[in-house]
Design a protein around this nucleic acid. Structure first.
Lengths: 118, 118
DNA sequence: ACTATACTTGAACAATCGTTCAAGTATCAA
DNA sequence: TTGATACTTGAACGATTGTTCAAGTATAGT
């Protein structure tokens, strides 16, 4: 007993099916990439930031104003988007202006929106 | 002082921009729906389940065998997919066979894969 | 009735996440 | 140099997540 709940002991499993699907399974790299990509898009703050930046280039304070959240919270999320190269920025005097750097993410975003709205 | 880090106090913000983007902002419903949809796709276990079921109808033990994870873990994730109506199931004797119930999610999945692989 | 298989489910747990708070840097104006 | 604005960042915090563990239900065979 001990570990009856552990990894499936394969007693009455369709071995042929399992082998076939296992062989066709996505690579770890693909799976990890997918979870990362969809993960950025799974937070409401980040979604709003991406949507706002798809409309216009904005400074951090503008974004915070639009979202109604703190500058710090926005800045933390912008760092995540920066690290994933989804946004780029330019400095102008005291301000930092952000804009979308990845057109593809917009396509994914809109595909998601279609799914949600239908 | 006190709350200088709180919600942006809007001192030197481009009010016109902010107002315009705010007005064009997604509805709460859309944003929540998007985060939910992308959220399901942000976990590696669920991604693998969805991918496996896109190939073939499978029982829980088969899925666990394919993923190399416990039956319990798979069952918990299947419940989430069930609740979101992404998978359907049928009972046959002792087994429960799952299959994809949402063609659109596959489209999103493949769109994501394109983004990851390019 | 008893045992085994095939799941499901709730509780507990560690890990991850997003926010706030507080402190820091950078730029500019007086 | 002092002070204000615009942002960044690390630490701390509570909340959420995914897994395991243990116990439960359901079906079938003996």
């Amino acid at each position: 007993m001990a570990k009856q709940q552990d990894i499936c002991e394969i007693k009455s499993v369709d071995q042929a099916k399992v082998k076939a699907v296992k062989k066709a399974m996505l690579s770890d790299k693909d799976v990890y990439g997918l979870s990362e990509t969809f993960g950025v898009l799974s937070d409401t703050t980040r979604l709003k930031i991406i949507y706002a930046l798809s409309k216009e280039e904005l400074c951090v304070c503008d974004i915070a104003g639009i979202l109604g959240s703190s500058i710090s919270a926005v800045s933390h999320q912008l760092r995540i988007l920066r690290n994933m190269r989804l946004v780029k920025f330019r400095k102008e005097a005291k301000r930092v202006y952000y804009s979308l750097d990845d057109a593809h993410i917009n396509k994914l975003f809109n595909e998601g929106l279609k799914h949600v709205r239908e």
